[in-house]
Protein backbone atom coordinates (compact mmCIF):
# COMPACT_ATOMS: atom_id res chain seq x y z
CA UNK A 1 0.00 0.00 0.00
CA UNK A 2 2.83 2.39 0.88
CA UNK A 3 4.61 1.74 -2.40
CA UNK A 4 1.35 2.51 -4.20
CA UNK A 5 1.10 5.85 -2.39
CA UNK A 6 4.73 6.58 -3.19
CA UNK A 7 4.06 5.93 -6.84
CA UNK A 8 1.04 8.19 -6.87
CA UNK A 9 2.98 10.93 -5.11
CA UNK A 10 5.79 10.56 -7.60
CA UNK A 11 3.33 10.85 -10.46
CA UNK A 12 1.73 13.91 -8.94
CA UNK A 13 5.12 15.53 -8.46
CA UNK A 14 6.02 14.84 -12.04
CA UNK A 15 2.80 16.31 -13.30
CA UNK A 16 3.40 19.35 -11.09
CA UNK A 17 6.86 19.72 -12.67
CA UNK A 18 5.33 19.42 -16.12
CA UNK A 19 2.78 22.01 -15.15
CA UNK A 20 5.50 24.42 -14.18
CA UNK A 21 7.50 23.69 -17.34
CA UNK A 22 4.63 24.03 -19.77
CA UNK A 23 1.86 26.39 -18.93
CA UNK A 24 -0.58 23.77 -17.76
CA UNK A 25 -0.83 20.02 -18.32
CA UNK A 26 -4.31 18.65 -18.79
CA UNK A 27 -3.36 15.01 -19.14
CA UNK A 28 -4.09 13.13 -15.96
CA UNK A 29 -1.01 11.76 -14.16
CA UNK A 30 -2.05 8.15 -14.76
CA UNK A 31 -2.40 8.78 -18.51
CA UNK A 32 1.03 10.33 -19.00
CA UNK A 33 3.72 8.81 -21.16
CA UNK A 34 6.22 7.20 -18.80
CA UNK A 35 8.50 4.29 -18.08
CA UNK A 36 7.25 1.45 -15.90
CA UNK A 37 8.72 -1.83 -14.67
CA UNK A 38 6.96 -4.79 -16.25
CA UNK A 39 6.10 -7.93 -14.23
CA UNK A 40 9.17 -9.69 -15.68
CA UNK A 41 11.46 -6.98 -14.36
CA UNK A 42 12.26 -5.18 -17.62
CA UNK A 43 11.65 -1.46 -18.05
CA UNK A 44 9.15 -0.55 -20.76
CA UNK A 45 7.80 2.72 -22.08
CA UNK A 46 4.04 3.13 -22.03
CA UNK A 47 1.69 5.79 -23.37
CA UNK A 48 -1.71 4.91 -21.89
CA UNK A 49 -3.75 7.14 -24.20
CA UNK A 50 -2.48 5.30 -27.25
CA UNK A 51 -2.14 1.93 -25.54
CA UNK A 52 -5.81 1.72 -24.64
CA UNK A 53 -7.06 3.14 -27.94
CA UNK A 54 -5.93 2.91 -31.53
CA UNK A 55 -4.15 5.94 -32.92
CA UNK A 56 -4.95 5.09 -36.54
CA UNK A 57 -6.28 7.84 -38.79
CA UNK A 58 -9.62 7.39 -40.55
CA UNK A 59 -9.50 6.33 -44.19
CA UNK A 60 -11.77 7.27 -47.05
CA UNK A 61 -14.08 4.42 -47.91
CA UNK A 62 -15.13 4.33 -51.55
CA UNK A 63 -18.77 3.62 -52.38
CA UNK A 64 -19.51 0.36 -54.19
CA UNK A 65 -20.43 0.26 -57.87
CA UNK A 66 -23.67 1.40 -59.39
CA UNK A 67 -26.77 -0.57 -58.57
CA UNK A 68 -25.44 -2.17 -55.38
CA UNK A 69 -24.61 1.18 -53.83
CA UNK A 70 -27.94 2.61 -54.95
CA UNK A 71 -29.76 -0.27 -53.32
CA UNK A 72 -27.75 0.10 -50.11
CA UNK A 73 -28.35 3.85 -50.15
CA UNK A 74 -32.08 3.20 -50.36
CA UNK A 75 -31.80 0.92 -47.32
CA UNK A 76 -29.71 3.51 -45.47
CA UNK A 77 -32.23 6.23 -46.25
CA UNK A 78 -35.15 4.15 -45.03
CA UNK A 79 -33.44 3.15 -41.80
CA UNK A 80 -31.88 6.13 -40.04
CA UNK A 81 -30.75 5.34 -36.52
CA UNK A 82 -30.22 8.48 -34.49
CA UNK A 83 -27.81 8.73 -31.59
CA UNK A 84 -29.71 9.73 -28.45
CA UNK A 85 -27.38 12.52 -27.40
CA UNK A 86 -28.88 15.93 -26.68
CA UNK A 87 -26.29 18.68 -26.69
CA UNK A 88 -28.31 21.81 -26.04
CA UNK A 89 -31.78 23.20 -25.54
CA UNK A 90 -32.92 21.66 -28.85
CA UNK A 91 -32.81 18.18 -27.42
CA UNK A 92 -36.22 18.92 -25.90
CA UNK A 93 -37.58 18.85 -29.46
CA UNK A 94 -36.43 15.28 -30.03
CA UNK A 95 -38.68 13.34 -27.59
CA UNK A 96 -41.90 14.75 -29.17
CA UNK A 97 -40.62 13.39 -32.47
CA UNK A 98 -41.28 9.88 -31.19
CA UNK A 99 -44.73 10.61 -29.77
CA UNK A 100 -48.10 9.94 -31.50
CA UNK A 101 -48.32 13.44 -32.91
CA UNK A 102 -45.15 13.37 -35.00
CA UNK A 103 -44.15 9.69 -34.92
CA UNK A 104 -40.85 9.63 -36.77
CA UNK A 105 -40.88 5.81 -36.70
CA UNK A 106 -43.11 5.99 -39.78
CA UNK A 107 -40.12 7.21 -41.77
CA UNK A 108 -37.69 4.64 -40.48
CA UNK A 109 -36.15 7.03 -37.94
CA UNK A 110 -35.28 5.33 -34.67
CA UNK A 111 -33.27 6.32 -31.63
CA UNK A 112 -30.28 4.27 -30.56
CA UNK A 113 -28.49 4.57 -27.26
CA UNK A 114 -24.97 3.85 -28.44
CA UNK A 115 -22.85 5.56 -31.10
CA UNK A 116 -21.73 2.19 -32.44
CA UNK A 117 -25.22 1.48 -33.78
CA UNK A 118 -26.21 4.98 -34.94
CA UNK A 119 -25.91 6.61 -38.34
CA UNK A 120 -27.24 10.10 -37.70
CA UNK A 121 -26.21 12.62 -35.09
CA UNK A 122 -28.53 15.52 -34.25
CA UNK A 123 -26.55 18.44 -32.85
CA UNK A 124 -29.45 19.98 -31.03
CA UNK A 125 -28.85 23.65 -30.51
CA UNK A 126 -25.97 25.47 -28.88
CA UNK A 127 -22.78 23.54 -28.38
CA UNK A 128 -20.37 24.44 -25.61
CA UNK A 129 -16.72 23.60 -25.94
CA UNK A 130 -17.01 21.07 -23.15
CA UNK A 131 -19.81 19.26 -25.00
CA UNK A 132 -18.01 19.56 -28.33
CA UNK A 133 -15.30 17.33 -26.94
CA UNK A 134 -17.88 14.62 -26.19
CA UNK A 135 -19.57 15.20 -29.54
CA UNK A 136 -16.29 14.60 -31.35
CA UNK A 137 -15.70 11.41 -29.39
CA UNK A 138 -19.19 10.13 -30.16
CA UNK A 139 -19.07 11.20 -33.80
CA UNK A 140 -15.79 9.44 -34.41
CA UNK A 141 -17.09 6.26 -32.81
CA UNK A 142 -20.05 6.07 -35.16
CA UNK A 143 -19.51 3.71 -38.10
CA UNK A 144 -19.40 5.21 -41.59
CA UNK A 145 -21.52 6.24 -43.47
CA UNK A 146 -22.69 8.75 -40.87
CA UNK A 147 -24.74 11.88 -41.12
CA UNK A 148 -24.98 15.06 -39.05
CA UNK A 149 -28.09 17.20 -38.71
CA UNK A 150 -27.42 20.62 -37.23
CA UNK A 151 -30.50 21.85 -35.43
CA UNK A 152 -31.12 25.51 -34.70
CA UNK A 153 -29.40 28.75 -35.58
CA UNK A 154 -26.77 28.27 -32.86
CA UNK A 155 -25.07 25.64 -34.97
CA UNK A 156 -25.14 27.87 -38.05
CA UNK A 157 -23.78 31.17 -36.82
CA UNK A 158 -23.91 31.07 -33.04
CA UNK A 159 -27.51 32.26 -32.79
CA UNK A 160 -28.27 34.24 -29.70
CA UNK A 161 -25.09 32.90 -28.07
CA UNK A 162 -22.83 34.30 -30.79
CA UNK A 163 -20.79 36.34 -28.27
CA UNK A 164 -20.53 33.71 -25.56
CA UNK A 165 -17.09 32.65 -24.35
CA UNK A 166 -18.04 28.98 -24.11
CA UNK A 167 -20.23 28.11 -27.11
CA UNK A 168 -19.02 27.62 -30.65
CA UNK A 169 -20.33 29.66 -33.56
CA UNK A 170 -20.03 27.42 -36.59
CA UNK A 171 -20.40 23.68 -36.31
CA UNK A 172 -19.08 22.94 -39.82
CA UNK A 173 -15.60 24.01 -38.75
CA UNK A 174 -15.39 21.07 -36.35
CA UNK A 175 -17.43 18.25 -37.91
CA UNK A 176 -18.96 18.05 -41.39
CA UNK A 177 -22.68 18.82 -41.51
CA UNK A 178 -25.16 17.25 -43.96
CA UNK A 179 -28.36 19.15 -43.23
CA UNK A 180 -28.94 22.43 -41.42
CA UNK A 181 -32.34 23.04 -39.84
CA UNK A 182 -32.72 26.75 -39.15
CA UNK A 183 -34.81 28.26 -36.40
CA UNK A 184 -34.70 29.01 -32.72
CA UNK A 185 -35.97 26.45 -31.87
CA UNK A 186 -37.12 24.55 -34.97
CA UNK A 187 -40.33 22.66 -34.26
CA UNK A 188 -40.47 18.88 -34.65
CA UNK A 189 -42.08 19.36 -38.07
CA UNK A 190 -38.94 21.19 -39.18
CA UNK A 191 -36.86 18.34 -37.84
CA UNK A 192 -38.98 15.85 -39.79
CA UNK A 193 -38.52 17.91 -42.95
CA UNK A 194 -34.78 17.85 -42.23
CA UNK A 195 -34.94 14.06 -42.11
CA UNK A 196 -36.74 14.05 -45.45
CA UNK A 197 -34.01 16.24 -46.92
CA UNK A 198 -31.37 13.91 -45.50
CA UNK A 199 -33.14 10.93 -47.09
CA UNK A 200 -33.08 12.65 -50.48
CA UNK A 201 -29.37 13.35 -50.10
CA UNK A 202 -28.63 9.75 -49.13
CA UNK A 203 -30.64 8.36 -52.02
CA UNK A 204 -28.79 10.65 -54.44
CA UNK A 205 -25.51 9.44 -52.97
CA UNK A 206 -24.51 12.91 -51.82
CA UNK A 207 -24.33 12.20 -48.08
CA UNK A 208 -20.66 11.20 -48.05
CA UNK A 209 -19.55 13.60 -45.33
CA UNK A 210 -17.77 10.85 -43.38
CA UNK A 211 -15.33 10.60 -46.28
CA UNK A 212 -14.99 14.37 -46.32
CA UNK A 213 -14.04 14.23 -42.65
CA UNK A 214 -11.38 11.64 -43.42
CA UNK A 215 -10.09 13.66 -46.38
CA UNK A 216 -9.82 16.96 -44.48
CA UNK A 217 -8.95 15.28 -41.22
CA UNK A 218 -5.95 17.48 -40.37
CA UNK A 219 -7.88 20.68 -40.94
CA UNK A 220 -10.79 19.59 -38.75
CA UNK A 221 -8.40 18.36 -36.07
CA UNK A 222 -6.54 21.68 -36.04
CA UNK A 223 -9.80 23.58 -35.58
CA UNK A 224 -10.89 21.25 -32.80
CA UNK A 225 -7.57 21.47 -30.99
CA UNK A 226 -7.61 25.25 -31.26
CA UNK A 227 -10.53 25.51 -28.87
CA UNK A 228 -10.30 22.27 -26.86
CA UNK A 229 -7.29 23.22 -24.78
CA UNK A 230 -7.39 20.15 -22.53
CA UNK A 231 -6.92 17.64 -25.31
CA UNK A 232 -6.34 14.42 -23.36
CA UNK A 233 -7.57 11.79 -25.80
CA UNK A 234 -6.24 10.15 -28.94
CA UNK A 235 -6.52 12.05 -32.21
CA UNK A 236 -9.18 9.71 -33.54
CA UNK A 237 -11.45 7.82 -31.18
CA UNK A 238 -12.17 4.51 -32.85
Amino acid sequence: METMNDKINEMLQRSAQNASQNEKSFIRPEDEEREVIAPDGSTIKINPIYDYFSGKKPQEEKPLNGVVEKFLNWARAESIWVLGFGTGCGSIEIPPLMTPRFDAYRFGVQMRATPRQSNAFIISGYLSVKTLKRVIRSYEQMPSPKYVLALGSCTINGGMYYDSYSTINRLDKYIPVDVYIAGCMPRPEALLSGFMKLKELIKEGKAEKANEYARNFDEYKANQKKIIKDWNMPDYNW
Binding site: E23, K130, N157, G158, Y165, S166, N169, N223, K226, K229
Partner: peptide
Amino acid sequence: FVLEGWTEIPHMRRDFDTAAYSEKTYFPR
Protein backbone atom coordinates in the same frame (compact mmCIF):
# COMPACT_ATOMS: atom_id res chain seq x y z
CA PHE B 1 -16.26 23.51 -12.28
CA VAL B 2 -17.93 24.16 -15.64
CA LEU B 3 -15.18 24.97 -18.09
CA GLU B 4 -12.47 22.56 -19.05
CA GLY B 5 -9.01 23.72 -19.92
CA TRP B 6 -9.68 27.44 -19.51
CA THR B 7 -6.50 29.43 -20.05
CA GLU B 8 -7.75 33.04 -20.19
CA ILE B 9 -8.49 35.31 -17.23
CA PRO B 10 -11.56 34.16 -15.23
CA HIS B 11 -14.54 34.61 -17.50
CA MET B 12 -16.95 36.37 -15.12
CA ARG B 13 -14.57 39.24 -14.37
CA ARG B 14 -15.84 42.32 -16.07
CA ASP B 15 -12.54 43.12 -17.76
CA PHE B 16 -12.89 39.87 -19.75
CA ASP B 17 -14.43 40.78 -23.12
CA THR B 18 -16.53 37.78 -24.07
CA ALA B 19 -17.61 39.10 -27.48
CA ALA B 20 -14.02 39.80 -28.51
CA TYR B 21 -12.93 36.40 -27.23
CA SER B 22 -15.72 34.70 -29.16
CA GLU B 23 -14.84 36.57 -32.33
CA LYS B 24 -11.17 35.68 -31.96
CA THR B 25 -11.78 32.00 -31.21
CA TYR B 26 -14.95 30.66 -32.76
CA PHE B 27 -14.87 31.54 -36.49
CA PRO B 28 -17.80 34.01 -36.66
CA ARG B 29 -19.84 33.61 -39.84
